[in-house]
Design a protein around this nucleic acid. Structure first.
Length: 672
DNA sequence: TTAGGGTTAG
């Protein structure tokens, strides 16, 4: 027990004993009296009046974890000492109530406070915003605007964040306007909140406009913008900004690194990731939870599991998120058994899984298509009170369906009292996969009846159901409904399903016309679906029309080579098949610096691996990014000095991806 | 006067 605990024991005792009388001096326990007086934060065991000490106590107590009972005692103390009119105390207590999720008490105190400082307003608005009661927070903000107290930087920052989490685009714009009108448009605190808020609602342009309108942004602002690029996968711009901030003399921190690494989504940027990792090491960045987690996640994304494990092993006490990064990494790399083994290890070591991790390992079990591990995890979720989490239920439905127990999935769905759109989509998709299209359609109707608005994924699931059951007319109807009734623009996945559906039914011409009606040029998935159908229906004439269209439009033929060669082979046009191989070879030889090491098309992956080992691809990629050479040189300089556990393949050994995404790497170079 | 606060991870 600390002396403050002693204090609370005594105080509670005195509080119970006294009724309406003013508190004076709490008598400390015998045990507490043995603590030397000079160690006490305030001399409460002497005969001072309590209210003199409350201030010092509050200051001291705000450093401690606040329990609800402690907060109530403090609140009582403040009232009994006639201090509740002072907004300083009200602010403190409101914050303590908010920490303990007692919004009712916080609000009561706020409502009864006669004087409301900006601090007090901010604390109650923040309390609602952090509890995700966004409309209450916003209403309070609007009341504040017409009150005598003016909002400050922190009010706006809090409300902006709330708007973005609330996905309230209109509200966000309105608050932005108020920021400008208040003359706080150039304040860093408002601006960093604006940058992040616009990013969260997906408006990168607006975020950029705010950021680049600032003369000399500080570290947090730069971090916010780098994080925007990171979240939207634009690592090139993130790296450019990184260089810029270094030139401006702004020293990066953990937030910067996290933002940068988050943006590295394309495996061809592995060298850059390794360089940033080296940068962290060189500058003695502590691999804290966030940095460690994004590094593990990055290496996992690039399927470099040895490197991911090395980072993981170097962390002192990895938390559930980092375990989850690694476990999900194994799963995404296709090593589902290892993912489950690591999960067991996590639990055996005393770890407590959360809904995100549970959903992840359920997905791994689903991929194994064996119900045993999945049902055990189901039991774990129930025992730990996560059964009602939508994320867990959705993963359970999917797992049971993929393991052959659709009825169990339906049972999970039916026993849920609260559902959301993701869960409906999952259930519709599973029904569709089992060929139970009419049940999927019925569930869609129930969903609409329940007041849910369908999204892109809903229609993907519906069209998938139509494909599995061969229901062309229903597919046509849903495709029309998506646009006309719900204003959802068809994406690649929708077109692929429609083309497959029409194509399989022999409606090749209709599918072709559908593709031609797409505003943007159709990609290889869409054309590929139609080519496969032409092959299946032996419609070589249309196949040739499509091939000529692709050649004419300089499409990347390597993406179509399998489908086209099948088509030509079916038509016994061996010369055309051979031509495809030649064309493919000619394309690749155009790339400077790459040694062509195979005459066959199968040589592609080898070629890429060979180049990767010699850093040719990576160097071209990196030097394409301006001002990045220092980062590479930095890594080279220190490459001899990295300890073994952090030497994550920077010297080109170990676990490069097996050429799986190499064609994309090559295409990147071709276009740059 | 005091106080709080803008940017990160699976």
């Amino acid at each position: 027990m600390s002396y403050l605990d002693y204090f609370f024991v005594d105080l509670y005792f005195v509080n119970v004993q006294t009724t309406s009388e003013k508190l004076t001096v709490p008598w400390c326990s015998q045990e507490a009296q043995e603590v030397p007086t000079e160690q006490f934060p305030c001399r409460w065991n002497t005969s001072y009046q309590m209210h003199i000490q409350v201030k010092a106590l509050l200051s001291e107590l705000s450093k401690l974890n606040q329990t609800l009972s402690r907060t109530k005692i403090l609140h009582g103390l403040v009232i009994q000492n006639n201090l509740s009119r002072d907004p300083f105390y009200a602010t403190k207590i409101v914050r303590f109530y908010a920490i303990n999720n007692d919004l009712v008490s916080a609000r009561n105190l706020f409502d009864k406070s006669p004087q409301r400082s900006t601090y007090l307003w901010n604390s109650i608005i923040r309390a609602y915003a952090q509890a995700h009661k966004f409309s209450d927070a916003f209403l309070l903000f609007q009341r504040m605007l017409i009150s005598e107290t003016e909002p400050d930087n922190f009010t706006f920052a809090c409300v902006l964040r709330a708007c973005s989490e609330w996905r309230n685009v209109e509200g966000l714009r309105a608050v932005h306007g108020k920021v400008v009108v208040s003359g706080l448009g150039m304040e860093f605190i408002c601006d960093s909140a604006l940058v992040s808020a616009y990013s969260k609602i997906g408006n990168v342009d607006a975020a950029s406009r705010v950021f680049y309108g600032i003369h000399e942004p500080d570290l947090v602002l730069c971090n916010s913008m780098i994080s925007v690029y990171g979240c939207h996968g634009d690592c090139t711009k993130g790296l450019q900004l990184f260089s810029m901030m270094l030139e401006m003399g702004v020293s990066p921190d953990g937030y910067t690194v996290v933002g940068l690494i988050t943006g590295l989504t394309d495996p061809s940027f592995i060298k850059v990731g390794e360089a940033i990792h080296g940068f962290c090491f060189k500058h003695s960045f502590v691999l804290n939870d966030h940095v460690g987690s994004v590094l593990v996640s990055m290496y996992s994304r690039f399927k470099c599991m040895d490197s991911a494990c090395r980072v993981f092993n170097s962390l002192v006490r990895p938390d559930v998120v980092i375990w989850s990064s690694l476990i999900t990494g194994f799963s995404q790399a296709g090593n589902y058994l290892k993912a489950l083994n690591f999960f067991s290890q996590f639990i055996i070591n005393g770890g407590k899984a959360d809904p995100v991790l549970i959903a992840s390992v359920l997905a791994a079990s689903a991929q194994l298509a064996v119900v045993g591990p999945g049902s055990e995890i189901h039991g774990y979720a129930v025992r730990n009170g996560y059964y009602m989490e939508i994320m867990v239920s959705t993963a359970l439905i999917d797992m049971y369906a993929k393991c052959g127990f659709l009825e169990l999935g339906i049972l999970v769905f039916k026993t849920k009292t609260n559902t959301n759109i993701v869960m409906y989509n999952s259930m519709i998709s599973c029904l569709g996969l089992y060929g139970r299209a009419s049940d999927a359609f019925q569930l869609f109707n129930d969903m609409i009846g329940g007041g849910f608005s369908p999204d892109e994924t809903t229609f993907c699931s519906l069209l998938c159901a139509c494909c599995h059951a061969g229901l062309v007319n229903d597919g046509r109807e849903y495709f029309k409904m998506m646009k006309n009734e719900f204003g959802i623009r068809a994406k690649t996945e929708h077109y692929v399903y429609m083309v497959k559906l029409l194509g399989m039914a022999g409606e090749l011409e209709e599918a072709y016309q559908l593709i031609k009606s797409i505003e943007e040029p159709a990609n290889s998935s869409i054309w590929g679906a139609l080519l496969s159908c032409c092959d299946a229906h032996k419609n070589y004439e249309l196949g040739e029309v499509i091939a000529q269209h692709l050649f004419k439009n300089k499409a990347e033929i390597s993406k179509y080579s399998v489908m086209l060669s099948n088509l030509y082979a079916g038509d016994e046009r061996w010369d055309a098949v051979n031509q495809l191989r030649v064309d493919k070879g000619r394309d690749i030889r155009k790339i400077p610096g790459i040694t062509w090491i195979g005459e066959k098309a199968e040589g592609f992956p080898n070629c890429c691996q060979h180049s990767l080992q010699h850093n040719l691809l990576s160097c071209q990629l990196i030097t394409a990014i301006s001002s990045m050479s220092w980062l590479i040189n930095d890594t080279r300089r220190m490459s001899g000095s990295m300890p073994e556990q952090l030497d994550c393949g920077a010297q080109g050994k170990g676990d490069r991806p097996e050429g799986s995404r190499c064609n994309e790497t090559l295409e990147y170079i071709c276009h740059n």
